[in-house]
């Protein structure tokens, strides 16, 4: 389940990056991604510099490179899409190893690949240095609407519970000789999904009841700490350095 994976994304350590408040890291990540996306694609050196910045963060946070590389696999679908671009785009063409490729398409592919990769690595670093609860606290302190923070809180809490329930249902199905090999098995799986939905809905009602019984009035108070000015300065150093790079890239263009 998603939440289960997310628990495992966190990599506990005592680095300065881990110690930064979650809200400052969230803001830094979002700003960094925006700056990267706004950089002109022809400024190849700028993307190299961004990569160096992220490598620096990873080094300070003591996140080993193999771990980051492994997690970058989530990007694979985008890579496939990017690979198609040079073949499908129109316009001026060049020959590379006997293949006729579109120059425009090559630039577009580079653009998607470079920006997506930097964004993915930045999120990987955020997830590896901030646990889920801290992220929720950060979002709440950044004034994300309560209802969304609450929905995410429940997702974090019940993802594994529902995943386990799904697993038990599968085991019970298979224990009675069910084999989901082909399309004919779909109605059975669909009915299981329906049963799971109803169970989860009923659980939702029971959770709500239990919350009301403890005086729930519409807010879930998560307790976090305010970010100090020094923390903001440290966290925002990354997007600030990126912004300088980006501006330089636009000026030199």
């Amino acid at each position: 389940m998603g939440a289960g994976h997310a628990h495992r994304l966190y990599r506990p350590a005592a680095s300065p990056v881990h110690r930064l408040s979650p809200q400052s890291k969230l803001v830094a990540t979002v700003l960094f991604v925006f700056v990267v996306v706004s950089t002109p694609r022809e400024a190849v050196w700028a993307f190299g510099l961004y990569a160096v910045l992220l490598a620096g963060v990873a080094a300070v946070a003591r996140i080993p490179a193999p771990l980051v590389l492994r997690r970058m696999l989530v990007e694979v679908p985008f890579v496939l899409f990017a690979v198609l671009m040079p073949f499908l785009s129109q316009g001026e063409r060049v020959d590379v190893l006997g293949l006729s490729l579109s120059v425009n398409g090559l630039w577009a592919a580079w653009n998607v690949l470079a920006k997506a990769t930097l964004g993915v690595v930045c999120s990987i670093l955020l997830a590896a240095t901030t646990d889920l609860r801290a992220l929720l606290v950060g979002l709440e302190r950044l004034h994300m609407p309560q209802i969304m923070v609450q929905i995410m809180t429940f997702m974090v809490r019940y993802g594994d519970v529902i995943g386990d329930e799904m697993d038990r249902m599968r085991i019970a199905r298979e224990s009675r000789g069910f084999q989901g090999r082909d399309v004919r098995a779909l109605p059975v799986v669909a009915r299981s999904a329906g049963a799971l939905f109803i169970r989860s809905y009923e659980r939702g009602e029971r959770v709500h009841l239990a919350m009301l019984s403890r005086g729930y009035t519409g807010t879930i108070p998560l307790r976090g700490e305010a970010t100090t000015a020094a923390q903001w300065r440290t966290a925002l150093a990354l997007p600030a350095a990126a912004l300088l790079t980006c501006i330089t890239a636009w000026v030199l263009r």
Partner: peptide, 10 residues
Amino acid sequence: DPDDQLFMPT
């Protein structure tokens, strides 16, 4: 069911 009562991250 304690899972109904315990709904927070920790």
